[in-house]
């Protein structure tokens, strides 16, 4: 059982989602505004946040940024299909995934499970014989403790960011296509949106790279995807 914080301003939608998620066995806190959500989060942490982008008062992006500022818990956006710009902005604000409204309960449930797996799941197996703790330049990755340090300082990574880094760094120098990463990290396969990958890479770079315009750890291979290193 996991605690889900649902932020949705429309009463009926909120109620519908609350019923559905509760039946899936989650403990649901359903609120109608970002401000309320931040209050609840301050009092008791949630396992996952389901956030409608279109909110009165503080909008979804701002809520997303505020949550990201203190916590690394996974965030799933609720968005309309015709809001492509919102999707991009939401991902940049730190959302891990998004679902398009109207959404069926089992679809939302599948996404929630996917992000929770990222948080709780095991890291990809390191190459045989390698130590659980790897050192790549200034970056130290502890696959057992799921801790990343840069120059000795711990780096706060959201679960998806961490999963992405673990996936890429497991095979340094190998190119991963966006589709491969979507499947491995987001459990989405070909129907996934490659913008998820791009947005997550941007956020990851902001946290681990010295110079985001000339990334050293997560490098872009034009036309193919991303690779870790070579340093």
């Amino acid at each position: 059982m996991s605690r889900v914080l649902l932020i949705e301003d429309h009463h009926t939608v909120r109620e519908g989602l609350r019923i559905a998620l509760t039946r899936q066995g989650h403990a649901v806190d359903a609120v109608d505004s970002g401000e309320r959500a931040l209050e609840i989060l301050a009092a008791a942490p949630a396992d996952v946040v389901v956030l409608d982008l279109m909110l009165p008062g503080m909008d979804g992006f701002e809520v997303c940024r505020r949550i990201r500022a203190d916590q690394d818990l996974p965030i799933i956006m609720l968005t309309a299909r015709d809001d492509d710009m919102d999707v991009v902005a939401g991902l940049e604000a730190g959302a891990d995934d998004y679902v398009v409204k109207p959404v069926q309960a089992r679809v939302l449930e599948a996404r929630i499970r996917a992000v929770l797996r990222r948080t709780n799941g095991r890291s990809p197996s390191p190459s045989p014989g390698a130590a659980a703790t790897e050192k790549h330049g200034d970056l130290t990755i502890d696959r057992a403790a799921l801790v990343v340090r840069k120059a000795g300082e711990p780096v706060g990574l959201a679960p998806t960011e961490l999963r992405l880094l673990l996936e890429l760094s497991a095979t340094p120098g190998r190119v991963h296509s966006r589709q491969q990463l979507l499947e491995a990290v987001w459990d989405q396969g070909y129907l996934g949106d490659s913008r998820l990958v791009d947005a997550c890479v941007q956020r990851l770079r902001a946290k681990i790279e010295d110079d985001t315009t000339a990334p050293a750890y997560v490098q872009t291979v034009r036309g193919f995807g991303y690779r870790f290193g070579p340093l």
Partner: peptide
Amino acid sequence: AAMTAVTDV
């Protein structure tokens, strides 16, 4: 959106 959320129910 509200109705879809509960169709599974």
